[in-house]
Design a binder for these strands. Structure first.
Length: 367
DNA sequence: TCTGGGGTCCTAGGACCC
DNA sequence: TCTGGGGTCCTAGGACCC
């Protein structure tokens, strides 16, 4: 069944037409807040954690970006940069409702919608439909019906469509065909590629590899030593502009977790245990509500020096029993707490989820 | 300036089994 | 007396994404 290298090369050397849209809502959470409260319009709005409680910026309006504020920045830093900024907590139930409305608009013509979080998605047009036309229709409908702007990119492969939508934000519309890709890729910084983060950028930069052209000019042996075979192959595909086929299997969640950063570091094992129980119960509630069971329990801790560790335990059979999950989690935590080291974050989660239809099959065999 | 919370995927070593 | 090779599961850590 597996495709030979030769077949793969034949396939990718054929000219590829535009086939996929990436759509990214502009400053989504902040834009929703500004839409719903006219007094916020034209002002620096920061949505996310509180500057007084170790929070970070989730999204900020374009007015706030002019002060240098951006996502993932500590909120305290954002306040320093712009003391007059308006800080709002995230209202996920509201954003989810708007996201649902946008998904409906994207799927209207029978397109396949692949969501990546609440504020962006890939849209795969049905056979025979021109993606540029479809992208224009979607962009117009979202503005008219939802009252928000977005940036869209159209290309022949998902990483390039994503790159395209980022080219002209906000309210952008960018097409990257094969000729455009050939022109822009050589000078493109590797960090602009989807999946190439700060660690990889820093590692490669230390060896003088900063752009796609640098990457192509590096001996294969050196790349393999630096990155290992898996990531070398991924980057080779990404920098070449060829489609990266990574089927993201189902839309079903693979893990459920809850974690919290404490306002102040904690040391007392009894207090940490109590907090862990709260978080584990929250996870159990979700399991029960969604009719799931899980076979692995994980406890996560972050010490005051930011060192982050996990401990996990797997059961022979999946469970959603609170007593069993707590009974596994608490000893895992005890292994991580010594009563003297400060703890800034505590988390509990479950993985290896079993869905109701999986359970039926298990019972069939157990019967 | 002092670093969220929710996830996904990958790697690597050791245990264990055939 | 020395010691295979492969497969799978478990555990832990880490990069990355929104």
């Amino acid at each position: 069944m597996s495709e030979s290298t030769q077949e793969r090369q034949l396939r990718v050397s054929r000219p590829m037409g535009l086939s996929v849209i990436h759509l990214d809502m502009d400053a989504f959470y902040a834009a929703v807040e500004q839409r719903d409260d006219p007094t916020l319009r034209g002002k620096p709005v920061v949505v996310g954690g509180s500057p007084n409680a170790r929070g970070v910026v989730s999204t900020c309006s374009y007015e706030a970006r002019r002060f240098g504020i951006h996502s993932a920045m500590p909120s305290s830093r954002a306040r320093d940069l712009c003391p007059s900024a308006i800080f709002l907590p995230s209202d996920f139930s509201k954003y989810k409702a708007v996201a649902r409305q946008i998904r409906e608009i994207m799927g209207r013509d029978g397109a396949m919608v692949e969501s990546l979080g609440l504020d962006e998605a890939f849209v795969h047009p049905p056979p025979g439909m021109d993606p540029v036309t479809l992208a224009g229709r979607i962009k117009g409908d979202i503005l008219r019906e939802v009252g928000l702007t977005c940036s869209v990119g159209v290309s022949y492969a998902r990483p390039l469509a994503k790159l395209a939508s980022e080219r002209e934000k906000p309210d952008g519309f960018t097409v990257i065909d094969q000729a455009a890709a050939r022109a822009m890729l050589p000078d493109l910084p590797l960090g602009d590629l989807w999946g190439v983060g700060p660690r990889t950028v820093a590692l490669l930069a230390r060896h003088g590899i900063e752009t796609c052209a640098d990457f192509w000019g590096t001996p294969r042996e050196e790349l393999l030593t630096l990155l290992g075979p898996g990531r070398t192959w991924d980057l080779a595909l990404l920098t070449s502009g060829r489609p990266l086929v990574r089927e993201r299997s189902t839309s079903r969640a693979k893990s459920i977790s809850r974690e919290t950063t404490l306002t102040q570091d904690a040391r007392d094992p009894a207090a940490l245990d109590e907090l862990l129980v709260e978080m584990a119960e929250h996870v159990v509630d979700r399991l029960e509500r969604e009719g799931l069971a899980a076979s692995t329990v994980t406890v996560k801790i972050r010490y005051s020096n930011f060192r982050t560790l996990t401990r996990s335990r797997t059961f022979g059979a999946a469970t959603s029993e609170s007593s069993q999950i707590l009974g596994a989690a608490r000893p895992l935590l005890a292994r991580l707490v010594d009563g003297s080291t400060g703890v800034r974050l505590l988390g509990a989660g479950v993985t290896d989820l079993v869905y109701p239809d999986d359970l039926r099959q298990v019972r069939l065999f157990g019967a």
